[in-house]
Design a protein around this nucleic acid. Structure first.
Length: 837
RNA sequence: GCCGAAGUGGCGGAACUGGCAGACGCGCCGGACUCAAAAUCCGGUGGGGCUCACCCCCCGUGUGGGUUCGAUUCCCACCUUCGGCACCA
């Protein structure tokens, strides 16, 4: 018998798959009429080509490959494409360091990644490969930008935005983590800049609503998105500044406390702040406060336990419900980005307002009385003495004609009254903000807009797309896009009036690129349009999407948003891009997540060289449940390799000792043989269920290991009879068939040696019902819930029979002797329990 | 602070609807093969106790309670770890 040499075997079968175009799936001739019931779109999140694959990628693509191969063999037409999220900062930063153009560097990296993916043996339709940095691709990204612009969904506005001083670019809210840049961890600053936004807030309600279409999404991903969108219901109340004849709306979730508003706050950035203090004696102090706030970093400002600060504007707002005039302050605990940037402050019933009021000596007026959690009560006169705000529900007091009402009901009544008076209305507020998509960096898709002094901001006509990314000499970020340094790029003529004009020099956030790539796969070479709708409607939505949970909000929410816009544009006929989502856990090493900075990275290439792709694939799935974080163990992979060696020797021995195509009729087998037939069938059932139902690859693999272990123990006896040999051949073929999705190379090789061909097309085995049931089983016998004995009983035995069998056990008798049996519990198929006293 | 997930041998992890805790793998121990080693094959391996040949008993799934004939599984409280959000009015 020859040795198991993964290198040769893997190269051999990778060549075979390529030559046979085993995984290429053409589009149907008439996609609109084609039957969609047997198609399956299996997709893993596309990699960012950062040089080499890491273990997370290996896990991701192996999992996708198992699903894809399993579905192919279950008769599905599996659509399984691959591409590269090739724009982005790292390539640009590397370019700055090495001087190599990002395009060149990226090309080199994508080629390397492709090679690695092929070495890993994933079943990809390579004819559909794409890179988001190719002009043939980003032409259409720009096209969508124009479509969004047409619909008013893309707009440019000056706003306080997140600025990363190290990346020298603005960032979307989603890319700021705890006040720091998601990429480089630098503290993010706030700057007022004119930037491009996508109006994702307009889709907030639909993004929430359509969670109901996503039954197979992990609950936590949905929860994270739901929290991010942050819908809250409340009331908009209009306060007036009579002196200046101004109206300032505020949003509140507690209209019931309106009578308790004793002051009014504006975010320091609020545009009205200027107006309120202009030319007054408070002007200097307020302006200084505003300036101080602006200088504060996002991190500092987010600290919640620092003392409340603010500055009186000298103006008063009129409370619509009682005509009371309350002082207006500017304070930095009011955020410009949420609600209206202004709030009514009710210190008695909001802890933050309470702290502010105590500090500034403002009246605290209780308008809801009730019981605190600690049992003490808060009454109408307690405003002066209370030490914390009372935020719970109760009865309304100090609230004029609403006194005595339950506060929730009273809140509704107040809202209704405001509405009838034209002084307020029911309102919904979202935490979600519009998606900031412009970046002051080089390596991205140029935003296809032109600034003309006469016509304003004008879109580039579709026929002029793509707006090609020009060459520049210097990629270094200097606070404006490097594209601005290329005069030939910047200077152009206005598409509207023909006069001289300047191109927009910002590029798009790379999350725009990855918000529609799954659609381009369906029609990747179309140069007339981004994709043919009928073709996209045929393959989409993605039946199974697999990726890291780190994209729970960013990519997954943006892609959902994009799909909904495309639905509204009537380019697709579905509202959600990914029907099922599986989020994989991370691989830890030495107690921490693998990262270059920690120096605990395990390089997949090394292991592929040493043990082969099959071993790596097998181990990475065997290591633990795919959705959880797991710990990489260096010696563990050795075990996976040993197991494949065991399979190799077992199957080859069967090939040598058993004539081809010898199968026995197992119906009348002797015990030894029958046992292995049963085990084989049970393994088929277990592996099939584990793969299809819960992605439990680890237990599927261990089931095959058990079968192989049993086979080793039984084989020497079985070789001696023809029937036994038939059973062994059946076992060997089954092992190869079941293992194929995990370790396709060695399985294809063994399948060939078993005198068959094209395992990847072989129908998935089905368990024979007749062999799933045993004739007898081990009945557990307990006394008072404690295990005392096990007895063999016939499978068909009834309760009486089981009790009888249990009673005859000597071990049981020892524990029941001299005691009274008060109860007998019989669970057929499982156990008998005697309760004694 | 709020929301969510998870705590099981020396380690990674099993246990489907409440019914044999520790499957499978790693590591370790022992045996076979060998001049020897590696590889391979076979066996053992949660802790403690005992009048310890594998007979038997007790304890044991983060902690403390509860429901139940019976709880890793359900309920309550708490502790720890990880992830998300965090002055959102």
């Amino acid at each position: 018998m020859d040795k198991y040499t993964p290198k040769d075997i893997e190269a051999k079968w990778q060549r075979a798959w390529e030559k046979e175009q085993a995984f290429d799936v053409p589009n149907p001739a008439d996609p609109a009429a084609a039957d969609r019931s047997r198609k399956s779109y299996v997709l893993e999140m596309l990699p960012y080509p950062s040089g080499t694959l890491h273990m997370g990628h290996v896990k991701n693509y192996t999992m996708g490959d198992v699903i894809a191969r399993f579905r192919i063999r279950n008769g599905f037409t599996v659509f399984h494409p691959m591409g590269y999220d090739a724009f982005g900062l790292p390539a640009e930063n590397a370019a700055i360091k090495t001087g190599l153009p990002p395009a060149e560097l990226t090309k080199r990296n994508t080629e390397n990644i492709e090679k690695q993916l092929r070495t890993l043996g994933v079943s990809i339709d390579w004819t559909r490969e794409l890179a988001t940095c190719d002009p043939e691709y980003y032409k259409w990204t720009q096209y969508f930008f124009l479509k969004f612009f047409e619909r008013g969904l893309a707009y440019r506005q000056e706003a306080a935005v997140n600025w990363c001083p190290s990346c020298q670019t603005v960032l979307a809210n989603e890319q700021v983590v705890q006040g720091a840049c998601e990429r480089c961890d630098s503290e993010v600053e706030t700057r007022n800049l004119a930037q491009w936004f996508f109006r994702i807030t307009e889709y907030a309600e639909r993004l929430l609503e359509d969670f109901k279409l996503l039954e197979q999404w992990p609950e936590r991903v949905i929860t994270m998105q739901r929290n991010w969108i942050g819908r809250s219901e409340g009331t908009e109340v209009i306060f007036r500044v009579d002196e200046l004849d101004l109206e300032i709306p505020v949003f509140t979730t507690r209209p019931d406390t309106l009578f308790g508003a004793t002051f009014f706050l504006l975010a320091p950035e609020h545009e009205l702040v200027d107006k309120l203090v202009d030319g007054t004696e408070r002007e200097a102090a307020v302006r200084e406060y505003v300036a101080k706030t602006r200088a504060k970093s996002a991190v500092d400002r987010a600290v919640t336990d620092r003392e409340k600060t603010g500055e009186f504007t000298g103006r008063y707002a009129t409370n619509p419900v009682n005509g009371e005039k309350i002082p207006i302050y500017a304070s930095d605990y009011v955020l410009m980005g949420y609600g209206t940037g202004a709030i009514m402050a009710v210190p008695a019933h909001d802890q933050r307002d309470f702290e502010f009021a105590r500090r500034f000596g403002i009246e605290v007026r209780v308008v809801v009385s009730g019981k605190r959690e600690d049992g003490t009560t808060v009454g109408p006169e307690d405003g002066r003495t209370m030490e914390t705000a009372f935020e719970a529900d109760g009865t309304m007091v100090n609230s004029g004609r609403f006194d005595g009402q339950d506060n929730r009901e009273g809140g509704r009544a107040i809202t209704a009254w405001l509405q009838s008076e034209g002084k307020g209305r029911q309102a919904v507020s979202y935490r979600l903000r519009d998606w900031l998509v412009s970046r002051q960096r080089y390596w991205g898709a140029p935003i296809p807009m032109i600034h003309c002094d006469r016509c304003g901001t004008v879109p580039v006509p579709v026929r002029d797309l793509p707006v090609l990314l020009p060459d520049v000499d210097d990629y270094a970020p200097r606070g404006q896009s490097p594209l601005a340094t290329n005069p030939e790029f910047v200077h152009t003529s206005c598409p509207a009036c023909g006069g001289p004009a300047r191109r927009e020099t910002d590029t798009m956030d790379t999350f725009v690129d990855s918000s529609w790539y799954f659609l381009r796969y369906t029609d990747p070479h179309n140069d007339e349009e981004p994709f043919d709708s009928a073709v996209a409607n045929y393959w989409m939505p993605v039946d199974q999407y697999i990726g890291g949970v780190e994209h729970a909000i960013l990519h997954l929410m943006y892609a959902r948003f994009f799909t909904k816009v495309l639905f509204d544009l009537e380019m697709v006929d579905f509202q959600e891009p990914f029907t099922n989502l599986f989020t994989q856990g991370m691989i830890h090493y030495k107690g921490a997540k693998m990262s270059k900075s920690k120096g605990n990275v395990v390089n997949p290439d090394e292991h592929m060289n040493r043990y082969g792709a099959d071993t790596l694939r097998l181990y990475i799935l065997f290591i633990g449940p795919p959705e959880l974080d797991v710990e990489w163990q260096d010696q563990g992979i050795e075990g996976a390799f040993r197991f494949l060696g065991r399979v190799w020797r077992l199957v080859n021995e069967v090939v040598e000792k058993v004539e081809p195509r010898r199968y026995a009729d197992y119906a009348n087998e002797y015990d030894e043989a029958k046992r292995l037939v049963r085990k084989t069938n049970r393994t088929i059932a277990k592996v099939s269920a584990d793969i299809s139902e819960r992605f439990r690859f680890n237990t599927a693999i261990s089931a095959v290991m058990e079968l192989v272990n049993d086979a080793y123990l039984a084989k020497d006896g079985l070789y001696r009879s023809e029937e036994g040999q038939g059973v062994l051949r059946f076992m060997a073929e089954t092992v190869v068939k079941l293992l194929d999705p995990f370790t396709p190379h060695i399985c294809s090789e063994l399948w060939q040696r078993l005198d068959h061909e094209r395992l990847w097309q072989e129908p998935w085995p089905e368990a024979d019902e007749r062999y799933l049931e045993e004739e007898t089983y081990e009945l557990v016998v307990q006394v008072n819930g404690k295990l005392r004995d096990r007895v063999q009983v016939p499978s068909k035995a009834g309760s009486e029979e089981l009790l009888e069998a249990a009673r005859t056990s000597a071990k049981v008798a020892r524990h029941t002797e001299g005691k009274e049996i008060v109860k007998e519990i019989v669970v057929p198929g499982k156990l008998v329990n005697f309760v004694v006293r």
